[in-house]
């Protein structure tokens, strides 16, 4: 490149004039194009492209405390609006969703609370969010009964984590629930590390019952051909990742197993690449594995997902407008759903 090539695009200074919509603010960020603002604006552009690409399947990978922090209804709404097609989640996020479905709550708290005192009151802390242990216990009790019901229906046959999520969604009636929304909209949820959450300890409780005829068997290996098939059938694939960990790698690995690589990628994380851990690995590094295509539209947003993700969604939904209708590639031949205004 010549010297002048480096000096083509001057930074446009952000102007805040009176009332500004979220998307207008994102456009200002795009004009700046710099640092976190530039990355966030680019993430909006890429997510919008994924949704406008009729041949793209959109994967949402969820890790971290997405639900306790208040993003439960946002994710359920994305499912119902067909703005995500497949979810890959930690077990914990679906546990948190089920807790709220069964009338439990997450409470605003403080990271400075006395943790020994919280222990004595049976209150758990998720940074500055509190949850009462009894909400987990009620979940344990009710889900252990569901496990028994599912195991009886399946008559000892093992099920995939995707089928497990579907069975729970069938039984949880709250329309704001992620599991319920996915069940009703036929959006697959994969929980590859299903035992690494309260789901695992509920299984212990369920299996501990004397004279239990059928013990629920969840086999996460059964998910692998299913998620690879989705990636394989879809002409293009995109991922939006909150955090990283097992959900991010499950999506990426499915793309490479399908011999494709992701065409679009937005990753929101605060992790760093130097440790070699997956959550902080850069998308350039991911290209080296073939999990994301070299020519893919991709961006890593460094920031708190609770701030970044709602901004991205709000901006893109505003751009799409209320008339936008999307038929996911997986649902071709089935009626499209108009988003509510």
């Amino acid at each position: 490149m010549k010297r002048k090539d480096y000096l083509q695009n001057p930074v446009k200074h952000i102007k805040i004039n009176g009332t500004l919509t979220v998307d207008q603010l994102m456009r200002q960020f795009q004009g700046s194009g710099s640092f976190g603002a530039g990355r966030l604006a680019r993430a909006c552009n890429i997510y919008e492209k994924m949704l406008r690409d009729k041949d793209c399947t959109v994967f949402l990978a969820l890790s971290g405390a997405v639900v306790p922090a208040g993003m439960r209804a946002l994710v359920a709404d994305l499912i119902r609006a067909r703005l995500v097609d497949v979810i890959v989640s930690t077990g914990a996020s679906m546990v948190h969703d089920a807790i709220e479905t069964l009338n439990g709550h997450h409470y605003k708290g403080s990271w400075m609370a006395d943790d020994r005192e919280l222990y004595r009151y049976h209150i758990f802390r998720i940074y500055d969010v509190f949850v009462a242990e009894e909400d987990y216990v009620k979940l344990d009790y009710q889900l252990a009964e569901m496990y028994r019901e599912i195991a009886t229906e399946r008559n000892g046959e093992s099920i995939s984590s995707n089928e497990f999520a579907w069975e729970l969604g069938k039984r949880l009636k709250d329309p704001n629930s992620i599991l319920r929304a996915a069940y009703e909209e036929n959006v697959p949820i994969f929980i590859p590390a299903v035992r690494d959450s309260e789901f695992g300890y509920i299984h212990l409780l369920h299996a501990s019952q004397e004279k239990q005829k059928n013990i629920l068997k969840v086999d996460a290996f059964k998910d692998v051909p299913r998620i690879c098939e989705i990636c394989g059938k879809s002409p293009r694939n995109g991922m939006v990742v909150i955090g990283g960990g097992v959900p991010r790698n499950t999506v990426q690995s499915a793309a490479i197993a399908a011999k494709k690589g992701m065409d679009y990628a937005v990753v929101i994380t605060m992790d760093r690449p130097e440790t070699g851990g997956l959550s902080g690995s850069t998308l350039r590094e991911t290209v080296s594995w073939g999990k994301v295509k070299g020519e893919a539209d991709k961006i890593m947003v460094i920031g708190d997902a609770l701030v970044m993700f709602p901004l991205i969604v709000a901006s893109v939904v505003e751009r799409l407008g209320s008339e936008f209708m999307r038929t996911p590639y997986l649902k071709r031949g089935k009626p499209a759903v108009r988003r509510s205004k």
């Binding site: 009151y121 049976h122 009462a132 242990e133 009894e134 987990y136 216990v137 009620k138 344990d140 009790y141 252990a144 409780l205 501990s208 019952q209």
Partner: peptide
């Protein structure tokens, strides 16, 4: 484990 704090508890052994 608490079930309705503080009056009632859930007993995993009885379960």
């Amino acid at each position: 484990n608490p079930y309705e704090y503080p009056a009632r508890i859930f007993c995993s052994k009885r379960y």
